[in-house]
Design a protein around this nucleic acid. Structure first.
Lengths: 197, 197
DNA sequence: CGATATCTTGAGCATTTTCAATAGTAGTGG
DNA sequence: CCACTACTATTGAAAATGCTCAAGATATCG
């Protein structure tokens, strides 16, 4: 095991790389994305402290991970880690739990991408990100957004313009407030309403 | 363990149901979907012989599974199966392998939903389904499509009309041929071209 | 402080959806 | 066996959501 740090905009691993390591994040945010040959990009998720990367048993990474902020993480050599697992059977159980939870998250995101309109997608993202941060940073109406507008767009299958316009409208309607490096949620109920629940 | 059969259009389990069982499919096709309260539906995948359902350790199913054709499967009681696993440690490893492979599939589908245009989505679906069947039915240019047009649309985040029009155009262009309960692929290269590879 | 990135905003446009009408297909009962 | 019903698929035309293009504003960083 080995502590390490990567700087913003630096890549931890790329799709196709040999998956010789495995990571857990201790601070910072990463973007996980799949890139098409023509430059189109789909961000499949963002990784935050407590998340694991490289849990799959695939010999190669299917996605690229790069840092949005300064990121601290622990690196484990894959082979060594697998050895450790042999001697701790319910460790594998835990890994499977994490992986199948991620699958559930992925399936929910498919609904967002396949069946939600633009405004719903942005609302879904903001609320989910907010709740996710709540569990590690505690409750607060202020939501840091370390990712840029283009990143949000690439996560939601939209363009940067659509994301920008949607957030701008919500600011005019006092649903959210612009704060440095994020937004403050003024009317969460209104956002949930948009999702039809 | 218990063999069973379900008839077309019948539901194996619904989202929110207690996940007391676990299944492996021996014949037939199922659709796995997530339903929004307003009726919109996202099909997250189709299950075919050899696939497992309910591998997640979640106490409830996140999705609904219903039969497109007559389906035969083996049901395992969850608790009993978990017991079995305790005594066969590399069984859990296998489960994790399957789950993390499904996660990779899900992430690839996110790219389709988020960043592909309509024609690319249909091409991606046809080719992937074709290759998947090839592994269990052997190579053949004829692709059975047990799912309806609406199912394909709900899988690809499109409308039934867009799917229908796309397939109709490909038939006119002799890229595919209409056959009962499926299509025959006449020009696979052309479909792959559409995906830009 | 100038240069480069990112973001915002507007206007026109295109892809895909919506709406509507028709055609095909399967199952049911006279 | 055929009419009747219900469901699914096809096709066209109009509409709309979100995209593209372009310009300006704001922020970031040596």
């Amino acid at each position: 095991m080995h502590h390490m740090t990567i700087a913003p905009k630096h890549t931890l691993f790329s799709q196709g790389d040999e998956a010789i390591s495995l990571y857990t994040i201790t601070s910072g945010t990463l973007r996980l994305h799949y890139d098409l040959p023509d430059g189109r990009r789909q961000i499949v998720g963002f990784a935050i402290p407590g998340d694991f990367l490289g849990l799959s048993l695939d010999p190669r990474f299917g996605i690229t991970a790069d840092a949005l902020t300064e990121v601290s993480l622990c690196r484990f050599e894959r082979a060594r880690f697998m050895n450790l697992i042999e001697r701790h059977p319910n460790m594998m159980r835990k890994m499977h739990e994490v992986a199948s939870h991620e699958l559930a998250i992925a399936q929910e995101h498919m609904v967002v991408l396949g069946r939600r309109r633009a405004e719903e997608r942005v609302a879904s993202f903001l609320l989910k990100w907010w709740h996710r941060l709540k569990r590690i940073q505690g409750a607060s109406p202020t939501v840091p957004l370390p990712m840029g507008r283009q990143d949000i767009a690439d996560h939601l299958g939209l363009t940067i313009e659509t994301v920008s316009r949607t957030l701008a409208r919500w600011m005019r309607e006092r649903i959210i407030l612009d704060v440095p490096d994020g937004v403050r949620i003024l009317d969460a109920a209104r956002l949930e309403e948009l999702l039809g629940n």
